[in-house]
Amino acid sequence: MSSLRRAQRLAGNRTTPVAGGRLRVRLAANAALAVIGLCFVLPLAWLLLASVDPNAGYETRWPQSPSFANFAAVLTPGLLFQPLVNSFILSAGTAVVNLAAAVLAAYPLSRYQSRFNKPFLYAILFGTSLPVTAIMVPVYGLFVQLQLLDSMPATIFFMATTTLPMAIWMTKNFMDSVPLELEEAAWMDGASGLATLRRIVLPLMRQGLGVVFIFVFIQAWGNFFVPFILLLSNSKQPASVSVFSFFGQHGAIAYGELAAFSILYSVPVLILYTVVARGSGSAFALSGAMKG
């Protein structure tokens, strides 16, 4: 088999036009990729350059007197810290509620055979496809009637629910890959299902849990529409909504400060994504989300 392969490779190498063609293809592919990458990076370049330009406008240009004045201007408790703390409470709260509910739900779905499993999982999958923006109008109505408007906990529970179907689906897939044998031994020793879940299954799927947590956290951190509708007081607004006021309500837009604030607000999710992508590969995270 390997000698056949080697013979084929030799045959391929002997015909130089093929090798030359390969190189040409490679160069063309690199050139095409570079052009695409340039198109994608241009809007981001403005963000970076404007943030260090005290006289920034909408044009992309090298700052004449680069400084961190924009960053210094937004580094105040009212402008930056309070919104970021609110963002953190909302996102971490959402991720914790989400993960707790998802792990509990995934355990019986992954470990016990039941007639209930399949219909439930398909209903969950169906739930992932409901457009959240469409649900916002009725949710607002519901929150008004239940007097939950401007409540952080209620907003957290709602945001957790919107990502819950995807989280259950991912968590169940990660849990399926933890072998049953270890648990069976613990069951023999009389440990209950939930005890084995906590002591054996969860430690073994740490990485998967991390992926789900970060996945939910990033989505909640970037969510603008939900807090925009459900939270009213300024003191509860997360950064996604407060940055919008930079843009809309101050009359003349402070472009540089807007860019600086945007960067400071984006850094946490960029870091978290890098952690997931480095640790396990985004393809791994996607496979948890996509595989049936």
Binding site: L44, L47, W221, F224, V243, Y255, S262, L270, Y273
Partner: peptide, 18 residues
């Protein structure tokens, strides 16, 4: 390509607006 996807939507929207 991934950076423009992972950025918060409102930041991506500002960048596109500019």
């Amino acid at each position: 390509v991934v950076a423009s996807w992972i950025l918060p939507e409102i930041v991506a929207a500002f960048a596109a607006y500019a």
